[in-house]
């Protein structure tokens, strides 16, 4: 995280930065579409999700200003994704481990 020297001035992202982020997002979009047509076997899903996560991070850090925001905003914005992670993790740990005990109906 980068804090602007003067926290009282809202950081205005220069046009060049916004343009660079936008171009990166477009390149990543075409990469993810291109990769979808290559047969990567079981790697297809993680690669697609990794590219989507990089795109989301670029949008969060620059378009949504998190890179230049206060620590409190940083916490608020990551909390949502943390909780989403907990939801998916605990749900899947249930589904994936159900067969382990060899008990009928479990």
């Amino acid at each position: 995280m980068v804090h602007s020297a003067d926290a009282h001035e809202p950081h205005i992202i220069p046009f060049r930065t916004n343009l660079a982020v936008f171009i990166a997002l477009m390149v990543l979009l075409f990469v993810t579409v291109g990769v979808a047509y290559l047969d990567l076997g079981p790697l297809g899903l993680p690669v697609a999700l990794a590219i989507a996560t990089i795109k989301a991070a670029l949008i969060l850090l620059y378009f949504m200003h998190i890179r230049y925001a206060s620590r409190l905003q940083w916490i608020f914005s990551s909390a949502a994704f943390l909780w989403l992670g907990i939801m998916i993790l605990i749900t899947m740990s249930d589904y994936l481990s159900r067969g382990w005990l060899n008990v009928d109906g479990k």
Binding site: A48, I51, K55, F63, M64
Partner: peptide, 20 residues
């Protein structure tokens, strides 16, 4: 931007990852 991020995940999940 949030609505954009949602689509960034929906597009690969629904359209792309089962091309093979």
């Amino acid at each position: 931007h949030f609505v954009d991020i949602v689509w960034v995940f929906l597009y690969p999940l629904l359209y792309l990852i089962d091309r093979h």
